[in-house]
């Protein structure tokens, strides 16, 4: 007998899909679908908070950057400088925390009774265990800042809920699953990544998903590089390899004169994505240290916003090491479904 038929005939029973879980998955899809980060801690909201007066609405669309510049550096030049940049290096032990302070802006999409979009902004500090073993892997302190307008969409009331009220959130992996090694981005995993450009490049490309080929694989490699740099500490050897590897990704180019979420000016290095945006890592012009990230619309039809508008903007402000993270009361895995 064919082994495939054997297993087909002996298929184990499937558990029924709980209607509550199903409905919640469907509505999560509707409400949080397009949020950028994967981890639950970015989930904003928290109902019941005092809604600020709507007079605060920022009607100015996200600013359009100017491109032309005098002396242009190529992407590989910028990345080469970044690879060689001297920085204050850290050496966290596995039981310590990497602490990163940042400011972020990402799109929020809500599709309840009425579709709403806005750009939510946060000021945040994250404590991530250098070695993320077990369920609890860190703590996030997050404060929502005034939202911005998603071009063409009035800012809804709910965008103001929780603004100005810092929250402390325990970060935990509650599903018991393990992230495959090639997708980990905790310090213990990062410090074991290849310290040569070739090896790092292979690592970046190993992150791509099924179905992705050609330019999609290139975009995934760039995304993986960004994931490794976001709210992390990458040791000097791996950082050098990483920047050198990014320089070999086809399509990576420079955006002159951009600003990070904190208003610091820098040089962007990135590529256009099939989501209709151009995504950049931002580097300081003098020190070539990483400042943050940005995502700007280049294809209005695909992105659903005018070309030139900014849909994501971050600034990484400070990276340090700490022995402890703030205490958060309660079991982070308690709230379920």
């Amino acid at each position: 007998m064919n082994e495939i038929d054997l297993y087909r005939d002996e298929r184990p029973g499937a558990e029924p899909y709980d209607p509550g879980a199903r409905a919640s998955a469907r509505s999560r899809l509707a409400s949080g679908g397009a949020r950028r980060a994967r981890r639950p801690y970015v989930v904003v909201a928290a109902a019941g908070a005092l809604a600020l007066a709507a007079t605060f609405v920022v009607t100015r669309p996200a600013q359009v950057e100017q491109r032309p510049q005098v002396r242009l550096m190529s992407a590989s030049e910028v990345l080469d400088r970044a690879a060689g940049a001297v920085a204050e290096e850290l050496d966290p032990r596995d039981d310590q925390y990497v602490v990163v302070k940042s400011q972020t802006m990402y799109g929020s999409y809500s599709m309840g009774e009425k579709e709403e979009r806005w750009l939510y902004r946060t000021s945040r500090t994250i404590w991530l265990r250098a070695e993320q073993t077990g369920d609890a892997y860190g703590v996030l302190r997050m404060e929502l800042l005034e939202p911005r307008e998603f071009p063409g969409w009035p800012i809804p009331k709910q965008a103001y809920e929780g603004v100005g009220k810092p929250e402390l959130i325990a970060l935990a992996n509650c599903d018991g699953g393990t992230v495959p090694d090639h997708l980990r981005s905790d310090y213990a995993a990062i410090k074991k990544l290849p310290s040569d450009a070739e090896g790092m490049r292979a690592h970046l490309y190993s992150a791509h998903e099924p179905n992705e080929k050609g330019v999609e694989a290139d975009q995934s490699a760039f995304t993986r590089a960004s994931d490794l740099l976001r709210e992390t500490y990458v040791p000097a050897a791996q950082r050098k390899a990483l920047y050198q590897a990014v320089a070999t990704i086809p399509g990576v180019s420079v955006t002159e004169k951009v600003r990070d979420a904190a208003g610091r000016e820098g040089i962007g290095v990135g590529l256009t994505t099939q989501a209709g945006t151009r995504d950049d890592l931002i580097f300081d012009r003098a020190s070539f240290a990483l400042l943050g990230e940005r995502s700007e619309v280049v294809d209005a039809a695909v992105a659903g916003a005018p070309a030139g508008s900014l849909l994501a903007s971050t600034a990484q402000l400070e990276v340090s090491v700490a022995d402890e993270a703030p205490e958060v009361a309660g079991d982070p895995c308690r709230t379920k479904g």
Binding site: G13, G33, A275
Partner: peptide, 26 residues
């Protein structure tokens, strides 16, 4: 995932569609 991991199956299903939603442009 097996009968003892019902909630994991719920999560994976939800995340599958979330990932699909995010990547739909591609």
């Amino acid at each position: 995932l097996g009968p003892e991991s019902v909630s994991a199956a719920d999560d994976v299903t939800a995340e599958t569609f979330l990932a699909a939603f995010r990547k739909r442009a591609r």
